[in-house]
Simulated scan of single mutants.
Amino acid sequence: MTGGRDPAGAPGAAGRTAARVAALTGEPVPAAEPLGGGDVCDAYRVAGEAGRTYAAKTLPAPPPGFFEAEAAGLRMLRETGTVAVPEVRAVQQDLLVLEWAEPGAPTAAQAERLGRELAALHTAPAPAFGTPGRRCYLGTVELPAPDRPPAGWPAFHAEHRLLPLLRAAVDAGTLGPGDARDVERVCAELDRLAGPPQPPAVIHGDLWSGNVLWGRERPWLIDPAAQGGHPETDLALLELFGCPHLDRLLAAYAEVRPLPGRAGRVPLHQLQHLLVHAVLFGGGYGARCGAAARAALR
């Protein structure tokens, strides 16, 4: 969402960002080039005179700990040693400065590599479901971070993901009573719907296709909501809005880490993000939440 922000292309905004990056990195920065595509933040390519290039994200008056949460998520993913993520160069309340990843074009080879890397990522254990002790955001929606989350994924996902988002969507007036009842049924039956038990694994948490950066040599992951979660959530999100060479990616993943019955659980794992979209954007997302809930119940 862009309401209340300087347009990314405004010379004043770009100039202020370049000056701040220069101060934080200690490197002269002549200019910042606006980048498109963001729904929440303004993004810039910032080239320093010493030859280093940075990515900078800004958001005036962000939610508490917004960029700190993203930086922590990037570090969580990096520490697994399985996927490529930009290194954090600096973080402030309204600014995040990252290593620049040069974009390229998506290829089948890169998709297969990402499938194998995600399979490796999802073998990395997390200490608990969620992010105990730190904040986590999907868009600008803060996800609960209980100090003692339930040990089982169904209870955690119902109590600390689906039900809080359901209440927020109902309060926003974007989810009708019938659709809300179907989401409540999913929560009540999650033990039955969840499939085999899953201990907390490190996941990206917001892995729609726009958060895959196809680089010149390898794929990178950006903009995470990294947490202890269920690996099938990452895969279901790649299917939510489409992803280049998705069939090759999923096949490569399955060769390393088979997940019997996963296809039938895709609507269940998409429901959380559809609820977030209903909260933030309204429109037809409320009806899509109901449809996903009913598909999960089948």
Score class of each variant (00 low, 15 high):
M1Y: 13
M1T: 14
P7W: 07
P7K: 10
G9W: 15
A10Q: 12
A13C: 08
A13F: 13
A13L: 11
R16Q: 10
R16I: 05
A18L: 02
V29P: 00
V29K: 03
E33Y: 11
P34T: 04
L35T: 05
L35P: 07
G37R: 07
V40S: 05
D42H: 14
D42C: 11
A43F: 02
Y44Q: 05
A50Q: 15
A50L: 14
A50M: 11
G51A: 10
Y54N: 01
Y54S: 02
P64R: 11
F67R: 00
F67Q: 02
E70Q: 11
A72D: 14
G73D: 02
G73Y: 01
L74N: 00
L77Y: 04
L77K: 02
E79M: 12
T82W: 11
A84W: 12
V85Q: 05
V88W: 06
A90F: 07
A90I: 10
Q92H: 13
Q92E: 15
Q93Y: 13
D94K: 07
W100V: 00
E102M: 09
A105S: 15
Q110W: 09
Q110N: 08
E112D: 05
R113M: 11
A119L: 00
A120I: 09
L121Y: 04
T123K: 14
A124S: 12
A126M: 09
A126R: 10
P127G: 13
P127N: 08
T131Q: 05
G133V: 05
R134P: 06
R134Y: 06
R135H: 13
R135T: 11
Y137V: 04
P146C: 04
R148Y: 09
A151N: 08
A155I: 14
A155Q: 15
F156S: 04
L163M: 13
L165S: 02
L166C: 06
L166A: 03
A168D: 12
A169I: 01
A169C: 03
A169G: 00
V170M: 10
D171I: 11
D171H: 15
G173A: 00
G173I: 09
L175M: 06
G176A: 12
G176R: 12
D182Y: 12
V186C: 01
D191C: 00
R192I: 05
A194L: 06
A194F: 05
Q198S: 12
P200Y: 09
P200F: 03
P200S: 05
V202A: 02
L207E: 04
L207P: 03
L213S: 00
E217P: 04
P219W: 09
P231K: 14
E232C: 03
T233C: 15
T233E: 13
D234I: 02
D234E: 04
L235N: 00
L238T: 02
E239I: 09
F241A: 04
H245K: 07
L246S: 05
A252Q: 03
V256A: 13
R257Q: 13
P258V: 07
L259G: 12
A263H: 13
V266D: 07
V266W: 10
L268E: 03
L268D: 02
Q272H: 15
H277R: 11
V279P: 10
V279W: 06
G282D: 00
G283H: 10
G286K: 10
G290Y: 11
